[in-house]
Design a binder for these strands. Structure first.
Length: 350
DNA sequence: AAGAATGATTGATG
DNA sequence: CATCAATCATTCTT
């Protein structure tokens, strides 16, 4: 950061930057330079740059909006700074000439030595340069505040777009048994949602915690997204039997649409349905994942009754009662939600 | 305006 | 280093 302090402030136009090595002033100048406030004039491009950034953003608007906003504010500060500085210089010069004229007039009636004049001018300049220093200081302060307000992304955060949250939720609920996307998956999601990878990580971190915190709140969302992904995957199949699995009116928690007497039984029936819909052939891993999501939807809905209300012993999927997802033992093991917390691996599927 | 939702940060932990 | 848990600060919803 202290790289280009080479030609710093030998003179800034007015050039009454004092000879005394004032470290404070040096620091202020350095910072203003580094921040681009007192740097090269940079054309009149403040608005142009902001507009270009905003225009070029197009799809990736999340990051550049903050930046353009920040830059706009910064250029505003810069403008004020330059205006004030110029004003001060002008005032200084005017005042100096004024005093000089006065002295010259007085020199007729009084002998005034040039030393005295010099001293007067020096006093005036010192006075004005102290004012300049105040200006610089306040400008630095403003820049610091601006930085802390805009570069600290915690402030002025923007919610992700609806589409992005949908994509993230789809991934989360379709990988509910192990919602830990790999780096590649994170990159993919980031690209799809036009957010950064760390944002994806943040989102998953928050989601995991908050899902685990109270699963009840996420019930409808869970089976909604699970069903949605399942339908999306096997779109042709679900059309015919829309009565059975349509989540179009599942509101207000009443388990009417999804009420099922025996979870295992319904799971089986759904499975058969799924397999049936797919005309044989490619019944590979793809169908498996669909079954997975469907199973999640079903089990979630099934466990809605009151298992997790008072007692938090309802642990769906790999979710451990102690917390933490803990690797799912088998890719295909069905953890029936109606069972007690004791038996986790009910392997016998019938 | 109050409270919920939400994205980001921080400190602890293994 | 990634994750969890708590917390902050903003935005959305009522």
């Amino acid at each position: 950061m202290a790289g280009r302090s080479a030609l710093v402030a030998p003179d800034i136009r007015g050039a009454q930057e004092e000879d005394p090595p004032d470290p404070q002033l040096m620091r202020l100048d350095n910072m203003l330079l580094a921040e681009g406030v007192s740097g090269p004039e940079k054309g009149g491009g403040s608005a142009a740059a902001a507009a270009a950034a905003a225009a070029a953003a197009g799809g990736a608007s999340d990051n550049s909006i903050e930046h353009s906003d920040y830059r706009a504010k910064l250029s505003q500060i810069r403008q004020i700074y330059h205006t004030e500085l110029e004003k001060y210089e002008q005032a200084c010069n005017e005042f100096t000439t004024h005093v000089m004229n006065l002295l010259r007039e007085q020199s007729r009636t009084r002998p005034i030595s040039p030393k005295e004049i010099e001293r007067m001018v020096g006093i005036i300049h010192r006075k004005f340069s102290s004012i300049q220093m105040q200006l610089k200081q306040s400008t630095c302060e403003a820049v610091m505040i601006l930085r802390s307000r805009f570069l600290d992304a915690r402030r002025k955060r923007r919610n992700f777009s609806k589409q992005a949250t949908e994509i993230l939720n789809e991934y989360f609920y379709s990988h509910l048994s192990n919602p830990y996307p790999s780096e590649e998956a994170k990159e993919e999601l980031a690209k799809k949602c036009s957010i950064t990878v760390s944002q994806v990580s943040n989102w998953f971190g928050n989601k995991r915690i908050r899902y685990k915190k109270n699963i009840g709140k996420f019930q409808e969302e869970a089976n909604l997204y699970a069903a949605k992904t399942a339908v999306t995957a096997a779109h042709a199949a679900a059309v015919q039997n829309s009565q059975a699995s349509s989540p179009s009116t599942p509101n207000s928690g009443s388990s009417g649409s999804f009420s099922l007497p025996n979870s295992g039984d319904l799971f089986m029936s759904m499975s058969t349905l799924n397999g049936d819909s797919y005309p044989g052939a490619q019944v590979g891993a793809g169908v498996q994942s669909q079954v997975d999501t469907l199973r999640h939807a079903i089990s979630q809905t099934a466990g809605y009754s009151e298992a997790m209300r008072g007692h938090s012993l309802y642990s769906p999927h790999g979710l451990n009662t102690n917390g933490g997802w803990q690797d799912e033992p088998a890719p295909c093991s069905v953890t029936s939600p109606t069972e007690g917390p004791g038996s986790v691996n009910s392997d016998t599927s019938n």
